[in-house]
Design a protein around this nucleic acid. Structure first.
Lengths: 256, 256
DNA sequence: CGTTCGATTGAGGAAGATCAATTAATGTGG
DNA sequence: CCACATTAATTGATCTTCCTCAATCGAACG
């Protein structure tokens, strides 16, 4: 599937030489850690600690900075003129925030921290200047924007084509894979969102999310930690994908 | 929660109020025509005529070019591993196609022409090279990517928060405004998609689309051209927005 | 230890999907 | 240009999924 050939000129370095197991799945792309190192060295960004509930920027605010998430978790909340709120994205270590502000000169969403973490503040102007002299920065930047576009489309597809249960399963799969890609443990994840937030993100009610999770647990696709239902055990991510497929299957053939 | 009825989201377009389409000083955004002129001059791109049904690129194909739509209409179709198809975007004059390929080295969608038109082919590598010497190109490129991200989020919000009728109304509003922004007539638009395609894009069935359109016509929010139902008359775009709001309103107060 | 917020679960209802029949547009060969 | 075939759109009648409303329970916190 993924192939390095095109990347010959575009991604000059990163043949993933002797890379720690967690990182190098995709040699056309750098690992998250490697990219962060590059960005940290090249840009020397201002570092800012954030806590749960902090907003890095808000809709309507004048655009000026992009942000790179070094640790923690963010949600991106879109706001409509008539007051609707919609969680439209989740951000993990290595992700960029603030692209939506470039075109209009103002951010169009809120970026809200869901945990303690650290973001790197990068002036867009300074970044552009740095990109002129260091084209590999440009590649990193464009890759981040491209990934965001691709993922947004996948989200739309999920919402449009999957029934509620499958959407929740796919959400958990995505979360787990996002952690795994970044070398974090993915077999037990702490959801940093309420059922209401998850439901908002997935286009369903909190009750439907709760029922879907219960069903997933009953089918042993996920497990709940001993105490509390915020921690979800995911022994096998493949089982989540299989569950999604099962939801899509025409019918169990009525057999018996 | 919603701290303010902040007018963050109003006037998503119209960067330069009351301005003839071509003129464009710098409100942060250039006009479509001006941007195209700049790109045409700076990049001297290969021009390619396309016809209805042509695909400019397909999912899985090796990435190498970006495309700028000079005329015509495209749909972007996302494909899942299990065979689901999802229309995830519509492209108009001045829009770019192919951003999804940058990160992974392969396109992840099909780009399908819905009409006769012309696309400009730009080698990504050549574009990067040109951007180094001409930073205004970089700004144009990033603005295009940023706009795509913002619009994808708006799409997700529509699908997640609007009932079916409102989604169709909002879709028509978006189409009409997209045309108007580009200086094309927006009071009578030709839908270049079947009901099934519209439904796919909006996450509903073709029957629901049809019923929604009938309802909009009955309420005189839209009209159908004398012959055929592919052409939709939109005497007042504001009426479409009003219809959306009406759908969101709690209840008609039970009067009578 | 009570208060509060979040999660779960159930019962009933509504929006929209599905199934089906009809009509309208489009296309084709004669 | 017309009969015919084909595809798209409309409309109606059920049926299903998911939402809404409501009650209960659990966990966190002062």
């Amino acid at each position: 599937m993924l192939d390095t050939a095109t990347a010959s000129k575009i991604a000059p370095s990163s043949p993933c030489p002797g890379m720690p197991a967690a990182a190098g799945h995709d040699c056309g792309n750098r690992s998250t850690a490697e990219t962060l190192r590059l960005l940290g060295e090249q840009l020397r960004p201002q570092r800012r600690v954030v806590h749960m509930g902090d907003t890095i920027y808000q809709a309507g605010e004048r655009f000026g900075n992009l942000y790179i998430l070094n640790s923690g978790f963010f949600k991106i909340v879109n706001l409509s003129a008539d007051g609707r709120e919609q969680v439209v994205g989740l951000k993990f270590r290595g992700d960029w925030l603030g692209f939506d502000g470039i075109a209009g000169g103002r951010y169009s969403c809120d970026a809200v921290s869901m945990d303690t973490g650290e973001v790197w503040v990068v002036s867009y102007e300074a970044l552009l200047a740095a990109c002129i002299t260091r084209p590999e920065l440009l590649q990193v930047l464009h890759a981040a924007m491209s990934r965001e576009i691709s993922h947004d489309r996948d989200s739309l597809m999920s919402v449009c084509t999957l029934p509620a249960d499958a959407r929740v399963a796919d959400f958990l799969r995505y979360w787990a894979e996002s952690l795994a890609e970044r070398g974090m443990r993915a077999d037990e994840i702490t959801l940093r969102m309420t059922r209401a937030e998850i439901g908002n993100y997935l286009g369903m009610t909190l009750e439907s999310v709760s029922r879907a999770l219960s069903r997933l647990a009953r089918d042993n696709v996920i497990g709940f930690a001993t105490k509390g239902r915020r921690d979800v055990q995911i022994p096998d991510v493949g089982a989540l994908s299989a569950f999604v497929q099962r939801c899509l299957a025409p019918a169990p053939a009525m057999l018996q």
